[in-house]
Design a protein around this nucleic acid. Structure first.
Length: 218
DNA sequence: CTCCCGATAT
DNA sequence: ATATCAGGAG
């Protein structure tokens, strides 16, 4: 496990590598963001943006998603994958936004997670990006990077990864750290081809050193 | 735990 | 051909 000082080194290095790490899901307002993040489950953000470019021209408010049939919405998001679940969730989510929240998106994680298709990770992204609430959403990149570097343990659940990060990173840095971990994971410490050979964190990375050793015997 | 699922990289 | 992608519900 990394020391607090080593974690600091990781965060500072990632800040240099990705000084402009930010939310890459296109959106005009909190409502669009909720839709985009729900759609982004198990799907690249590039593909989500491709779909929402057209989707957001057709749908603007929760009522719009209820004005068409579920089959039509499925068709409009079909290239995303998991489109049956997502279409159903989005419609239920829009109903609740209208009936419980007066058509507005709630601002706290507690309220957000009650919405259909919105789990802990999505709630954190929306609260953080749309409303400036300090949060660390643990997605596949944050989890993989935290485990490879040794910020947390391999066996840790997503909830435990989030707790560990919140404990070891100052609250005012939660949101930027979250985005830097994602960029680091998405563009450098990639799932299938991590760039260990040119990684500035190799000296403190458990997994990276293991991988580089396994490569010498070739 | 399984299921949902098309697009893309490897 | 297979792994992976800003996961969540049952």
């Amino acid at each position: 496990m990394l020391t607090l000082k080593q974690i600091r080194f990781c965060l500072d290095t990632m800040a240099e590598m990705f000084p402009d790490a930010h939310c890459e899901l296109n959106h005009r307002n909190p409502f669009d963001l909720v839709i985009a993040v729900v759609l982004s489950a198990q799907c690249t953000d590039a593909l989500v943006n491709k779909v929402t470019t057209e989707l957001f021209k057709k749908y603007h408010v929760p009522e719009d998603y209820l004005a068409v049939t579920e089959e039509e919405l499925q068709h409009d998001i079909r290239s995303i994958g998991l489109y049956r679940n997502k279409a159903k969730n989005i419609r239920k989510l829009c109903e609740d936004l209208i009936h419980v929240y007066g058509g507005n998106v709630p601002e706290t994680q507690e309220e957000l997670v009650k919405l259909a298709g919105v789990g802990r990770k999505t709630a954190n992204v929306v609260a953080s990006v749309a409303f400036g609430v300090p949060a660390i959403a643990v997605d596949t990149h944050v989890e993989r990077v935290s485990k490879r570097l040794g910020i947390c343990r391999w066996k840790d659940s997503v909830t435990e990864v989030e707790k560990t990060l919140m404990r070891k990173v100052p609250e005012e840095e939660w949101s930027v750290t979250h985005h830097r971990l994602i960029f680091f994971g998405r563009y450098h410490c990639k799932a299938q081809s991590p760039q260990c050979d040119i990684c500035p964190l190799l000296e403190i990375c458990r997994e990276g050193q293991k991988r580089m050793k396994g490569r010498e015997k070739k």
